[in-house]
């Protein structure tokens, strides 16, 4: 079973919720925690799993065999990303690494078989185990544009090595491709929102993504405000269950600042997260 924790807006508490959920599940069962927020992977600040192995996340990158290249210009013409240029006069082919998406069009279309591929290093995949938690994280290198590609790489690798029955995914913020990639395999999506018009507006966008993909969803309202009713009204209108409400509490904020997740910090919340998990498990089994 895969549970993806997502939110439209950043900073609503995805990582707090996902790590709290993982921590609560891990008290009784084995669980995989996957940090797919590759631009800002922060889960392990809270889970503190020692990293046992690191692998290179890579994309294929074309290299030119100048023995075979005739500078015909086909590779440049077929590249949709403007990542390859042929300079006929100086007999040079220039590849712009950071624009290249590794689609393979230049290699496949080269009439002279003059292009092969090497691995371009775009990020680091790391994993480790502590108690019942199998932890996996993707981390994009600074200055890289290829967030979605890094996520895709991590997902492929996970298919090979992740054997846990329960997987919790910490998704990136937003509603674009990286988020879809993180929701694609989910059996249940937990939408984390904060109780403000920003939180609500962006959560509606994320809800739209999940709806388009026919996902079962529930809402966690973080930093809940007694006076703000719109989030609950939206949930009621759409028939989405509210899984948990967490009021703003300076105690929690301070624990967060120090890298302690909610369900580790508070027994009350650990039980609430255990209950939330039981509910989600029931919903998934009934599907």
């Amino acid at each position: 079973m895969v549970i993806t924790v997502a939110s439209g807006k950043g900073g609503t508490g995805k990582t707090t919720i996902s790590t709290s959920l993982t921590y609560a599940i891990s008290r009784k069962r084995e669980v995989a925690h996957v940090d797919l927020d590759v631009e800002e992977p922060d889960s392990n600040i809270f889970l503190k799993v020692p990293i046992q192995r690191e692998e290179m996340i890579w994309l294929p990158l074309p290299v030119i065999d100048y023995e075979k290249c005739t500078f015909c210009g086909v590779c440049q013409r077929v590249c949709e990303y403007n990542a390859i240029f042929v300079f006929k006069n100086t007999r040079e082919v220039k590849v712009f690494d950071q624009l290249c998406r590794g689609c393979g069009a230049c290699k496949e279309m080269c009439p002279f078989d003059a292009i092969s591929e090497i691995q371009r290093f775009i990020g680091v995949f790391s994993y480790g185990k502590k108690d019942n938690i199998n932890f996996y994280e993707g981390r994009l290198n600074i200055g890289e544009y290829v967030t979605t590609d890094a996520i895709r790489w991590v997902k492929r690798r996970l298919k090979e090595i992740n054997k846990s029955e329960i997987t919790v995914i910490d998704a990136p913020p937003g509603t674009s491709c990286p988020v879809i990639q993180s929701m694609k395999d989910a059996d249940y999506v937990v939408l984390v929102t904060e109780d403000t018009p920003f939180g609500l507006f962006d959560m509606k966008l994320a809800y739209g993504v999940g709806k388009k993909m026919n996902k079962k969803m529930g809402i966690v309202i973080n930093k809940a405000l007694p006076g703000y009713k719109e989030t609950r009204e939206f949930a009621k209108r759409e028939g989405i269950p509210i899984l948990l409400e967490i009021p703003f509490d300076k105690k929690f904020a301070k624990a967060y600042a120090e890298g302690i997740t909610l369900s580790e910090f508070s027994k009350e919340y650990r039980e609430k997260f255990e209950e939330m998990f039981r509910y989600i498990e029931g919903e998934v089994k009934n599907a």
């Binding site: 631009e39 994009l140 990136p172 990286p178």
Partner: peptide, 10 residues
């Protein structure tokens, strides 16, 4: 600006 360090931030 957008959050993160990816494509739109660049």
């Amino acid at each position: 600006g957008p959050p993160g360090i990816g494509c739109p931030v660049n």
